[in-house]
């Protein structure tokens, strides 16, 4: 946990099912996805941070027409999730019927999960808490 965070390591953590955020060493702000400078104080001094895995649904869509590499997975949800630690991430949303998006309510509580795509990649994901 002491090494300087990199994007490559951030993506590898997700791939291995162990999501970690960045944390600004100078002001303590939690940051994800990675940024080269803190949203709060502008510092570029970062370390890793474990997160609670709790979040809320901010907004979402259901992708029906997908790029070639994701075509077999469509339709699928992509959501904006606000973590309990304050930062927001883009992630897959699990646990809902992609053909019934009107049943999904914004603001619901979510928890961290992962989705193994048909392409072989692992996506950051959230499901209802």
């Amino acid at each position: 946990m002491s090494e300087k965070p990199t994007i490559e390591a951030y993506l590898k953590n997700i791939e291995e099912g162990h999501f970690k955020a960045y944390k600004c060493v100078d002001c303590g702000m939690i940051i994800a996805p990675p940024s080269g400078s803190c949203y709060g104080c502008g510092s570029s001094n970062m370390k890793w941070a474990e997160v609670s895995g709790k979040g809320k649904l901010v907004s979402f869509t259901v992708i029906h027409v997908a790029p070639d590499q994701f075509a077999e997975e469509a339709p699928y949800y992509v959501a904006i999730v606000e973590l309990a630690e304050g930062t927001r991430v883009s992630a897959r949303l699990l646990g809902f019927d992609p053909l019934k998006p009107e049943q999904v309510r914004l603001g619901i509580n979510l928890k961290l999960d992962y989705e193994k795509g048909k392409s072989g990649a692992t996506y950051l994901a959230f499901k209802p808490a």
Binding site: I63, V65, P67, F70, I80, V89, S90, G117
Partner: peptide
């Protein structure tokens, strides 16, 4: 590419997310 396109978010998807927020 690294944080949004890589999970399958498309351009129409970006504006769809804005639409859902605006509708709500």
């Amino acid at each position: 590419d690294q944080f949004e396109s890589s999970i399958g978010l498309t351009f129409p998807g970006v504006f769809a997310i804005a639409a859902v927020a605006h509708m709500q």
